[in-house]
Simulated scan of single mutants.
Amino acid sequence: MAGWERKQTDVEKGIVIPDDWPGYPLDLFTFPEHYSEDLDCVYIPHGVIMDRIERLARNIMDDLGDHDIVVLCVLKGGYQFCADLVDCIKVLCCNSNKTLPMRVDFIRLKSYLNDQSTEDLHIEGAENLSALSGKNVLIVEAIVDTGKTMKALLDHVEAFKPKMIKVAGLLVKRVASKTGYLPDYVGFEISNRFVVGYALDYNEYFRDLNHICVISDSGKQKYKI
């Protein structure tokens, strides 16, 4: 796509979307009418998301094929990415000489208030992670910004002594306060803008958008708590 960069020498960053990327005008796409005044632009169209996820699935198959894995989906924002990633892996398993038996489990993290990440991290479902002991774990998260939340989750999961942990992140933000943490599989590296859609929310709204969009200031005020 015009204006986007795929760094062949630094592929772990995924597709790098520059800070000056304006996104696409809303009138080029379809989306729920009730959000017509609440969005600035379509940042990443749904079709591009799906193409990138297919590539991530191939990379995961290349690395982890013929191993049993537990896919740990981080809710709520990661449910759509996880479902589509698992579907892509299942298709590859049917058309490849490799196989990747998967179990899927879920954990919920909550650290945002409105559009700000807070230090108050809530982990729900943590009591069920004893089943990860000795297993190969693939954590699937929709977005990583500072990396603090993911590092806290990794510390928590490591306490259950899994055999291996890998992380797939659809979006990684470029933020000044970043810890330096980067997932093993990255879909897109994006600027520090608050994005919604594709199950990413703002106070539980916008999960029903297919595209990843930038929320407008009026949208933030409308759904602020």
Rank of each mutant, 00 (worst) to 15 (best):
R6W: 03
Q8R: 12
I89Y: 08
E158P: 10
R108T: 14
L154E: 03
T146N: 04
D19W: 01
F106I: 02
P18Q: 10
L109D: 01
Q116G: 01
E141P: 10
V214Q: 13
S36A: 13
F106R: 04
I143F: 07
T30C: 08
V74K: 09
I17W: 02
G23K: 12
S111G: 09
R55D: 14
A57G: 10
R108K: 15
L72Q: 00
S218Q: 14
L75W: 07
L113M: 13
Y205L: 08
G187R: 10
G134H: 03
P101D: 10
T146F: 06
L182H: 05
L92F: 10
L154I: 14
V42H: 09
L109T: 13
L100Q: 07
D68A: 15
I53T: 06
L26D: 12
L171A: 11
M50R: 09
G125C: 05
V196D: 09
K178P: 00
L100D: 03
L56T: 14
P101Y: 00
N136P: 10
I139Q: 04
R108M: 15
E37W: 03
E141C: 08
I139F: 04
K163M: 14
D10M: 12
K148N: 06
H156I: 03
D27C: 11
I165N: 07
D20Y: 14
S130G: 11
I44M: 04
G125R: 07
Y223D: 03
V11E: 06
E37R: 08
L109P: 03
E33H: 09
D155N: 12
D208L: 08
H122M: 11
P183D: 11
D217T: 10
R55V: 15
C213P: 03
C82A: 15
V195L: 14
S191N: 07
Y112R: 10
K13G: 03
M1G: 15
C94P: 05
M102Y: 01
T9W: 11
I215V: 12
A176C: 10
L121C: 01
E5P: 00
H156W: 01
M164F: 14
N95H: 14
Y79R: 14
D145E: 13
M50G: 09
G125A: 05
L153F: 01
